[in-house]
């Protein structure tokens, strides 16, 4: 069911599966929560991602072997039975327009969809937070409907505006700050996900759900959006 491997002098990696699976984020989220409670005396950080949990610990107080055996004991318990981690649903308003969706026009042509159909496909489902990384508050959300899946751009853009919503293969995400990146940009949100608001570090947790909802150009502009 799981496998523990060495990751560094004070870290291990626990695998819960070998491919992306919608059931894993909750299992991993739950286990991370439990581990943090039970081994709080020695754990430094826990990084959940897709199929794995990266755990760093204080090597001053516990050896690699002892740490692994404490983790094994925790893993042996039935985590699913405990109501440890409560996923949230985060709602994100998106203006899906050609002015801000830099790749939207191309995608509509490639996928042979009209704008309404595209918006409906992207915004009608819940997405699961599979991982957080690349940069702070960047949540990898899956799984995008096959009809609008698209590979990353061959050449990443140097500058993507903050709030841009993108698609890469089966994943979708919001860029929290202006950055470079190769995702296909389909719209923009006005929600500030940057660290200018320090509380944003807790905006998403692995296992949470995200729901996008479309707003009109007027709503976007009236809320302070620039085209």
């Amino acid at each position: 069911m799981h496998k523990i491997i060495l990751a560094g002098e004070n870290s291990i990696l626990i695998y819960f599966g070998d491919k992306i699976d919608a059931s894993l984020p909750e299992i991993i989220g739950n286990f991370a929560y439990q581990l943090k409670n039970e081994l709080s005396d020695v754990i430094i950080d826990l990084i959940p991602s897709y199929t794995s949990l990266h755990v760093s610990y204080d090597l001053n107080t516990i050896s690699y072997q002892d740490f692994c055996s404490r983790v094994e004991k925790c893993l042996a318990k039935d985590v699913s039975a405990s109501t440890t981690f409560t996923p949230q649903t985060i709602h994100i308003p998106v203006y899906y327009g050609f002015e801000v969706g830099l790749d939207l026009e191309r995608l509509l042509a490639e996928k042979e969809l009209d704008l309404d159909a595209f918006i409906d496909i992207h915004s009608s489902q819940d997405y699961l937070v599979h991982a957080i990384g690349f940069s702070p508050v960047f949540a990898f959300l899956g799984e995008v409907d096959k009809r609008i899946q698209t590979p990353r751009l061959a050449t990443p853009r140097i500058k993507i505006p903050a709030g841009s919503v993108g698609i890469a293969e089966s994943q979708t995400a919001v860029y929290p700050t202006e950055s470079s990146g190769g995702w296909n940009i389909i719209g923009r949100t006005l929600i500030d996900l940057s660290l200018n608001n320090p509380d944003n570090i807790n905006k998403f947790s692995v296992g949470d759900r995200v729901k996008f909802y479309p707003i009109t150009k007027d709503e976007f502009v009236n809320s302070g959006g620039t085209l």
Binding site: I47, Y50, T51
Partner: peptide, 10 residues
């Protein structure tokens, strides 16, 4: 591969 947590020095 599927993205996973990175250790310093990986």
């Amino acid at each position: 591969m599927v993205s996973e947590g990175i250790s310093y020095g990986g």
